[in-house]
Simulated assay, not measured.
Amino acid sequence: MTVVTNKGVILKAIPEEIPNVDEHFELTHRTIDIKNLNLGENEIFLRNLYLSLDPYIRFTLKKPDLDHIKVDTPIANKVPVGQVISGLGVSEVVKTNNPNYKIGDLVYGPIGWEEYSHIKSDVAPTFSPVNKELLNDIPLNYHASFLRMGGLTSYASLMAIGKPKEGETIYISAAAGSTGQLVGQIAKIKGLKVIGSTGSDEKVDFLLNELKFDAAFNYKKVDLDKTLSEYCPNGIDIYYENVGGETLEIVLNHCNQFARIVVCGMISQYNITNPKKKYGVKTLENIFLKSISMQGFLVMEYLGTDIQKEFEKDIVEWIKSDKIFYKENMIDGIENTAKGFVDIFNGKNNGKTIVKLADY
């Protein structure tokens, strides 16, 4: 029997603020006949195994005509209402008309929030193979983010923009998230003093006792200005920015001369669709008074570069030698994908959120 179910999550309505599972997402029940599916030249058909849920997807769920942010990258393309939402993940090739792939290959790339994805010829080149030999030491789910875009995000931005030096102090906001947890551990390997903030006491315990941060605190329970003075008495050399808004405003006052600010995200502002309601940071003069470097990035900028090669070598070595601990929030089934995504913005995730779609 070649007819299989292919449940998927479509965008039901465009969210104005934090998305709501029932209001903005819909689980569709579909079937597909694999045997009789006709593939065009260079197309592939995939059985999706693991899906990465990332905050950037929120940018794809906005009205194109009202969005003041323009991003020239395929993974940030707006999703029309009624269409399956897209993300990044690991899949198995089950049918192919592409000479670069054979049935049974494992690949990583842009897939739908669905059980199976038909990849057209213009998208197929963006996929890359998963080295099955690594599966002896590293679980397949790690390849959905940790060993790919997710891990490269943390490594490349810290090394290229943060330029860490032994003995310096780094402060990481949203430090228990998928990016922050890796940035902090890499910084520890490089000999930095690592301070992190997060939104629950449980996550603080995770940062201190499992990741071995030098200090961590629940930002909801403290005065950030006083806490940074306490934990960073000699100032901040690197600020890894994941939050934005008032946090950035306060941190700028604690930055040292020639500090580097790595802007990975500003999640506090993602669900504010009216530009006039965005938080206006009032301490920007620190940037020129202290000669601070503040730089954003897109992880795609590092693909194919020497720093990606260094990352791939270092991350595998660190995993095998137990120098890196990677926490995942594993969700089971396409049915729970929308809730897992919304939980990221409600602070309910601890670590990287991955959806297991099928057994391998």
Rank of each mutant, 00 (worst) to 15 (best):
317 E>K: 15
170 I>C: 01
16 E>W: 06
251 V>G: 10
342 V>G: 06
222 V>F: 03
265 G>D: 14
46 L>Q: 12
148 R>L: 13
10 I>T: 14
84 V>F: 04
50 Y>A: 08
114 E>R: 05
74 P>E: 05
49 L>S: 01
89 G>S: 02
308 Q>R: 01
114 E>N: 00
103 I>R: 06
265 G>S: 12
303 L>C: 01
23 E>L: 15
155 Y>G: 02
360 Y>A: 07
219 Y>M: 07
327 K>E: 06
250 I>T: 15
327 K>H: 12
355 V>L: 03
333 G>R: 06
170 I>S: 02
301 E>M: 13
149 M>K: 15
290 K>H: 11
13 A>H: 12
312 E>N: 12
242 N>D: 07
145 S>C: 12
157 S>N: 03
295 Q>M: 06
240 Y>E: 05
97 N>I: 08
354 I>M: 03
243 V>C: 11
152 L>S: 09
125 P>W: 11
188 K>W: 11
170 I>T: 08
75 I>Y: 15
94 V>S: 06
152 L>P: 09
216 A>H: 01
339 K>W: 01
256 N>E: 12
50 Y>V: 04
167 G>P: 00
34 I>N: 11
266 M>G: 12
184 G>N: 10
140 L>I: 02
47 R>L: 07
245 G>D: 04
134 L>D: 14
360 Y>T: 10
324 I>S: 12
65 D>E: 15
2 T>E: 12
271 N>H: 05
